[in-house]
Amino acid sequence: MNKTIYDVAREAGVSMATVSRVLNGTAVVKEETKAKVQAAIEKLGYRPNAVARGLASKRTKTIGVILPDVSDLFHAEVLRGIEDIAMMYHYHIILTSSDAREDREIDLIGTMWEKQVDGLVFISERITKEIVRTFEQAQLPVVLCATDDPEGRIPSVAIDNESAAYDATRFFLDQGIANIAFFGGPTTHRVTMERRHGYERALQEAGQSVQESLILHAPDMKYEGAHSVAAEFLRQGHHAAAVVAASDEIALGYLNAVRDRGGNSPQDVLLLGFDNTRLSTIVRPELTTVAQPTYDLGAVSVRLLTKLLNEEPIDDYTVRLPHSIIERTSTKRG
């Protein structure tokens, strides 16, 4: 039979309230008493029930994490930061993938509420009114990670995506390069559109017109869809001297579409990706990319959430982390 807090209290010769204080750290307990309780726990093999403890303390020491795709390299690196800082602050995480579907995101928020998580780290391609309404109904502390709330109602940690794409486009413009294409994900993807706006702003400030024929949108941020769209773009006779891509996978989709036609980079096109995932150094040529501090995005999101949970002072509910451009061989000719 499973041992209970009563069994531990009887074995240690203390009250159940004392065992609870030791388990939850809610009050100062003499070291001698604490040692007795810990010894009883080890002897009996007692495993505290997180939900039962949560009913008493109103905390389960769990954080829910909802992200679009756990297999995605960008999200995997963000998750490392989430896990490390959650562990540091003695929280467990419950991880789920939404497949970037709003209906599934809404269901998962409800599931997290049922599991009595203390708070949520939420990564999504867009924050809709329905998502915000669901957060409000669940009454859970939430921090958006690598995601923006367009109205700034929800605490968030991200980079300035528009400025990052602006800098990426300026990277080519400052070299005197024209005929620069933008290759993003779907137009419903908020991050894609922020990056597109940065691209357009850079062109306009440089006195260059925005050509719709040089703006491509893949069905998602993945390689396969990007490769298909790029192949059709090239088949129709279009040509870009340089491409600012909204993810490393999209950049590689364009690269291989060029290779399929006998071309290569940087000889035939200069390529600049986004996110600085492992793909950017595995591929040849190595990919110039906008580096997001992916680990820090996850780490800072959890730290902000723990501040909310513990009612600690917070200087800024909207955190913007720095980005940089890492130049590699995909943009170096000669």
Rank of each mutant, 00 (worst) to 15 (best):
D99G: 10
F74C: 05
K43T: 11
V37A: 00
L67R: 01
K58Q: 15
Q38C: 08
V70D: 12
K30S: 13
E83I: 03
A39N: 10
K36R: 15
I94G: 10
I85D: 03
I93D: 10
V78N: 03
T60S: 08
H90D: 14
A50T: 06
I94R: 07
D99F: 11
P68Y: 01
H75E: 09
L79T: 09
K30H: 12
A56D: 07
Q38H: 14
Q38R: 14
S57R: 01
A86D: 06
T62L: 06
E32I: 07
I93N: 14
K36S: 02
I94N: 11
Y89V: 06
I82N: 01
H92S: 13
R101M: 15
M88R: 13
V70A: 15
I41C: 02
A39C: 07
G45M: 09
D69C: 07
T96N: 15
I66Q: 03
A86T: 05
I82S: 02
L55G: 04
D84Q: 08
T96D: 14
T60Q: 03
R80I: 09
S71F: 11
A100W: 05
T62C: 08
Y89C: 07
P68I: 02
E31R: 11
L95D: 08
I93P: 08
S57H: 04
S71V: 14
D72H: 15
A50K: 04
E32L: 06
I63Q: 01
K36A: 01
V70M: 13
E32R: 08
T60C: 04
A86L: 05
V70I: 15
Q38S: 11
A50Y: 07
V70E: 12
A40G: 02
F74W: 08
S98D: 07
G64R: 00
M88E: 15
M87K: 09
A76K: 07
E105I: 09
H90A: 13
Y89G: 06
I85F: 07
Q38F: 12
K61S: 09
K61F: 07
P68R: 00
Y46G: 02
D99N: 13
E42V: 09
T96K: 11
E42F: 10
T96G: 13
R101Q: 15
L73T: 11
V78K: 01
S71T: 15
S98N: 09
D84P: 10
Y91Q: 03
A52H: 03
Y91T: 02
L95Y: 08
K43S: 13
D84L: 05
V78I: 14
E102W: 12
I82E: 00
A56I: 06
A35C: 04
S71Q: 09
A50N: 09
S97K: 04
A40Y: 00
L44S: 06
E31A: 11
L79W: 05
I66G: 02
Q38Y: 14
A40V: 01
L55Q: 05
I85G: 00
A52S: 07
L95T: 08
D72K: 06
K61A: 07
A100M: 12
K36Q: 10
R101F: 14
I63G: 00
V37M: 04
S98W: 02
D84R: 05
P68F: 01
M87L: 15
P68W: 00
L67E: 03
D84C: 06
G81Q: 02
A39P: 04
S71L: 11
E32W: 08
N49H: 08
V65L: 12
R80H: 14
V37I: 11
R47K: 14
